[in-house]
Nucleic acid binder design. Sequence first.
DNA 1: CACAGTTGGTAACTAATGTTACCCAGCACT
DNA 2: AGTGCTGGGTAACATTAGTTACCAACTGTG
Lengths: 214, 214
Amino acid sequence: MEILLKERYEYVFEKELLEEIIKEGQFRKVRKDVIMIEIGDKLTHMPLILEGAIKIVNEDDTDNEYLLYYLEMGDSCAMTMTCCIGGKKSNIRAVTEKETLMYMIPIHKMEDWLIKYKSWRAFVFDSYDVRMSEMLEAINVLAFQNMEERLYKYLKDRAMVLQSPFLEITHYQIANDLNTSRVVISRLVKKLMIDQKIETNRNKITVLEFLPQK
Amino acid sequence: MEILLKERYEYVFEKELLEEIIKEGQFRKVRKDVIMIEIGDKLTHMPLILEGAIKIVNEDDTDNEYLLYYLEMGDSCAMTMTCCIGGKKSNIRAVTEKETLMYMIPIHKMEDWLIKYKSWRAFVFDSYDVRMSEMLEAINVLAFQNMEERLYKYLKDRAMVLQSPFLEITHYQIANDLNTSRVVISRLVKKLMIDQKIETNRNKITVLEFLPQK
DNA sequence: CACAGTTGGTAACTAATGTTACCCAGCACT
DNA sequence: AGTGCTGGGTAACATTAGTTACCAACTGTG
């Protein structure tokens, strides 16, 4: 497990820092569809993603959901960082999108490392930067794109994250992530099929753009 | 001017840090409607807002705009921080919403201070936290609210920022900030008026909730 | 005052999205 | 084979938002 951590992060962190991380943190393996963080949770650890993918979702007071972005290999959770440092509660939910390996770092170390390691500072600020960009993109999509474009982007993003053009997903799940209704998704899925952008079967959507033998 | 800086930030920063800030930075006064940061700019200074308000806006490739949030007294620009540290380009635009006083800090100091001052670390991470929350709220509004609710929130937010229930603004400007059309805004303004939430005249909207003699 | 430019009121229409209702196919279980 | 559940297709309709077009009122300038 340490080997995996070293492999993934040896060019990101200084040697001494990597050793400290290994010493202080602990390895964790989580199966698909597990809620890692719930809205309102207080957080004590920060994850470094080694493999897999985590979906980050927000929710309003009436249980509407909206998919914000995914965390993947090499990512960490900027939300967690501020939560940790400020001692605040999470305002997002994190759910594993497939089996995910991560290394959990206790938050009390974070500030020490900020002082001691340049590579940690770089990592932390880079994480913030990536997350802010993802949020900005989410806003752009919501503000400027119609549902059909958003659906197609959603499918492509998902195919990227799961590294496969063959998605196992129901129309109802998609509707939930995009905060719309199942009927709307069915309608637009049909449109995308007519436009030869996807193929569909019960529980299955294939994103043609990502088909290997193209 | 230093007095203002000390007054606003003496409880935020350690004494030594405050002195360093005064020494390294420089005071700047900017009139209303000045573009402080344009999309694609490289940034060399980070602003501490002493007085006034700055509107942060994003834009897609076809010149559509959308208002993200405001910076006010006590705020700084988290976007600028990542830009600075990562040496990247800005992906937002910043425009003064009224005359604004700020203290410009050269970015090369930022990392030093992260190491040296606990209060600087707290400030930086708090800034990120506030900005992430604002972005999240923007996403919530876009994902879950209809145009009428968004318009009303927009007017209330603006009244807060400008500290007055009497807004001088055209329907066209509002439409631009919310990325919709003037006709739509006119329609909804009328609705809000009928519902006794606002009063309007040419170029003027009064948010009744914020009227003092209520 | 005449004129041009800005602001916004409104109608009429189109397009996009959301809602309700109903049906059918596939699947698991008995 | 019968039952119930889930997923999805589709029609019909309601609501919301965007578009085009036109006009009226106000403002500042010469």
